[in-house]
């Protein structure tokens, strides 16, 4: 007489297949979520560096005259910043673009007020900003993202 029900071998085989199925599902979910996270971080990182580069190009193009723009050391900030002087409604103002605490920042100050890095707002998350002014020629700059990607830029002064 044939035994009814599953044998222990069938049971073990089924369980093994179930375990295999579960492991495959888990590994798929883990790798997919890891890939998504990595991809999302890279996109965000590149987006930040694009914003920074685009912002700097726009600011420089608007103000690229020898007498209006300078690269200076700023109190309380490690790296040099860009100082753009302008007159708005008869007031002399300074727009200062600098890198501080992981962000490219912009602050607008009256020319007779003291620079304070906290009185500024963040533009984009950046690891580093290298700026080098070439006398009467232009500004050479490099933006480095948190993930270490970098974009180089150069803007020539508008000839008088």
């Amino acid at each position: 007489m044939k035994r009814r029900g599953s044998s222990s071998t069938e049971f073990i085989l089924t369980m093994l297949l179930l375990i295999l199925f579960s492991l495959a599902t888990i590994s798929l979910v883990v790798s997919a979520s890891g890939a998504y996270r990595g991809s999302e971080e890279t996109i965000e990182d590149e987006s930040q560096i694009r914003v920074a580069q685009s912002y700097l190009y726009t600011k420089f193009r608007q103000n690229m005259e020898v007498n209006r723009i300078s690269v200076e050391s700023l109190p309380g900030v490690e790296e040099k910043g860009i100082v753009i002087t302008d007159t708005v409604l008869g007031e002399d103002i300074k727009t200062i673009i600098f890198h501080h605490e992981g962000y490219l920042r912009e602050g607008v100050f009256l020319s007779n007020t003291e620079f304070n890095p906290t009185s500024s707002y963040p533009i984009a998350s950046l690891e580093k900003l290298n700026i080098n002014m070439i006398e009467n020629k232009g500004i050479d700059f490099e933006t480095i993202s948190v993930e270490g990607k970098s974009f180089k830029g150069f803007i020539a002064f508008i000839p008088k």
Binding site: I134, K137, G138, K152, G153, F154, I155, A156, F157
Partner: peptide, 9 residues
């Protein structure tokens, strides 16, 4: 852009 600008300057 870098090349064009550096040629200008």
């Amino acid at each position: 852009n870098y090349i064009i600008e550096s040629i200008k300057a």
